[in-house]
């Protein structure tokens, strides 16, 4: 990450503008607190220190930013800020539709839409989009019950 992804200008701009970056060695006590067993481990926290998203292993720049957007969306989702979560997922899906995390973003966008309106339509739309665009994704399977709504 330190050799390829973090020096990338787009990644650096994204991180510096939208997050507070912290870097800690895996030999430090904080790593034990977070039960880190392998590096790189990337964790997205809310500003109270609660974990909402974690990844392990290398990410190239074009896949790292959508991963961070997913994590930011999950911070908003977990704290019931569903409109904000939808905004993060929309950015991800508009700018990085081929990302490996796009199907999860579609799924969580649908759930966020339901949670904010109590209308089942966003769930069904999420399933239809997943089925059409990512038929092999596990998130399409997870959304299968919404096809019955």
């Amino acid at each position: 990450m330190g050799a390829v992804t973090y020096p990338d200008e787009k990644v650096a701009d994204f991180v510096m503008q939208r997050m507070v970056p912290v870097q800690v060695g895996a030999n430090m006590p904080l790593a034990a607190e977070f039960k880190v067993k392998w590096t790189p481990t990337i964790v997205v926290l809310d500003y109270y220190g609660k974990e909402h998203h974690r990844t392990v292993g290398f990410f190239a720049p074009e896949e790292f930013i959508p991963n961070l957007l997913l994590g930011m969306g999950k911070v908003d989702f977990d704290t019931d800020l569903f409109g904000n979560a939808i905004h993060q997922f929309d950015i991800l899906l508009e700018e990085y539709p081929k990302s490996g995390v796009a199907p999860e973003a579609i799924y969580l966008r649908g759930v966020s839409g339901y949670k904010s309106t109590h209308d089942a339509k966003p769930l069904k739309e999420a399933y239809e989009k997943l089925k059409a665009e990512y038929p092999q994704s596990e998130w399409t399977m997870r959304a299968l019950p919404y096809s019955l709504l």
Partner: peptide, 30 residues
């Protein structure tokens, strides 16, 4: 260039002040 914090407590304070989430990277120190 990313300017990293090394102290999570300080980063959380910044996060609250700037209304930003935290990116916490655990790296292999070698």
């Amino acid at each position: 260039m990313i300017t990293w914090e090394s102290d999570l407590t300080k980063a959380l304070g910044r996060g609250q002040a700037e209304k930003k989430p935290i990116l916490l990277d655990f790296f292999n120190p070698g």
